[in-house]
Amino acid sequence: MAEINLNNVCVEAGGARLLQNVSASIRSGELIALIGPNGAGKSTLLKCALALMTPSAGTVTINGKAIADLSPIERARLVSYLPQSRLLAWPVRVRDVVALGRYAYGASTTKLKGEDTAAVAAAMHDCDLNHLADRRTDTLSGGELARVHCARAFASKAPLLIADEPVASLDPSHQFQIMSLIRAYVDNGGGGVVVLHDIALAARFADRLIWMKDGEIHANGGVEETLTEARMKQIFSVTAIVAKDQNSWSLTVTGGCS
């Protein structure tokens, strides 16, 4: 079990308020989808939760300890991170990228020991990467590369996962595949937060939706409770028809409004 708590977090940069009194928690056993228009403060919230950014006010704790007090290694063992950019500086081999997930355990790409080897092998298997193990990452398709990054996050065996638009620029089938992998990770005891722009996808996979706009959280709750036509208008300024059919949600935007 692990839990990250953000308490009345504010972030200011260059006179602009990026986050305003944001409180939320990310915990094991729950998948949160963070939803909101561009510039709503979603990435800023994630960066505060990862100690990539220091709030100007408020606190961020992980398992009760201030996140800034944890060493990078201690933090990385509790929470793994998938940033938006999947680009690699070098065309490294797939297996080596996944092995980087074991960084916080002292593993190096050149030498993997028992537990690290097992974790890397399991993550490669779960993400269906075995046949790609020796491929250069610059020869992979966008969907394959997204799976490689998921595998390196899973290989760390961290109880929490923070993913910033993990399905951006992927086709529908790969979006579904990546979200299924993250869902399986949560069902096996993990917990996490993902930024998603596809609200129907978020509604299908997430346990809870956090709706953000202008640096504030406007709603935070279950899908049934918070996904409404009024909410779509409030957050995205669009009129939309929201419908549920058994387990899957559909969303039709019928027009923008001002």
Partner: peptide, 20 residues
């Protein structure tokens, strides 16, 4: 040297991996 490998993923991802 391990940090250099981790930096292949970019600075933010390397931070996430536990690189100081």
């Amino acid at each position: 040297r391990r940090a250099l490998s981790a930096l292949s993923l970019g600075e933010e991802a390397a931070h996430g991996l536990g690189v100081d």
